[in-house]
Amino acid sequence: MKKLHKLANPGKFYRLSEKILPWSNLLAISLCGLGLYLGLFVAPPDYQQGETVRIIYVHVPAATLASLVYAIMAITSAISFIWKNPLGSFIAKAAAPIGAAFTIIAIITGALWGKPTWGTWWIWDARLTSVLILFFLYLGYIGVWQIFEDQNKAAKAAAIIALVGAINLPIIKFSVDWWNTLHQGASIIRLDGPSIHSDILIPLIFMWLGFISYLISVLIIRIQSEITLQKIRAIQIMISEQK
């Protein structure tokens, strides 16, 4: 019975998340819907890039969330490592695939935008390269969880990897920027050129908030299913011990 009691701890989280989930779902759908409508039909096309510019309504929120999720992972991992509580590590575990998905969305939309604008799918630009490396870090983090059979060990190992990655990320970013200025001319058209018009900015903010709501929803669902999975495992072990 002790074991069940130990697992009842995340119950608090479960009840709280049940209250948040419907709201974050609603916000995600409505904000993204509104943002997409404004972005695709109301906002004017760019005078240089034409209709292709509309891809930024997906690309920019995805790219910012890609790094934001890694920051969340680093913080929750640090908490779990310092206070020796696996819950933080499990939150990071739930977040990692979402972050990886945002990263890959950012890369693909970037490539789709790059083809008509730069004339090529991929360019070894500092940002693109950094995002690609971020994607590798996500894959590495997810890999650690799968390699260890003992989930408690995996939780601690993954926390270390996430922290080491988080400390290194600024250094990597700095080195990539350095590398890029040496190898590339400054002729690349960047997204953040002139100041952004409010017709573009407002749908962008809607999309961004919508993406964050979506992140919260998926995160909650993934953590809930992780808790349930742990419960099932504990019950299975208890049953096998009683026999």
Binding site: K2, K3, D150, R233, I237, E241
Partner: peptide
């Protein structure tokens, strides 16, 4: 004192 080895107590 109770102690686990793997997932078994």
């Amino acid at each position: 004192v109770s102690c686990d080895r793997g997932n078994r107590t």
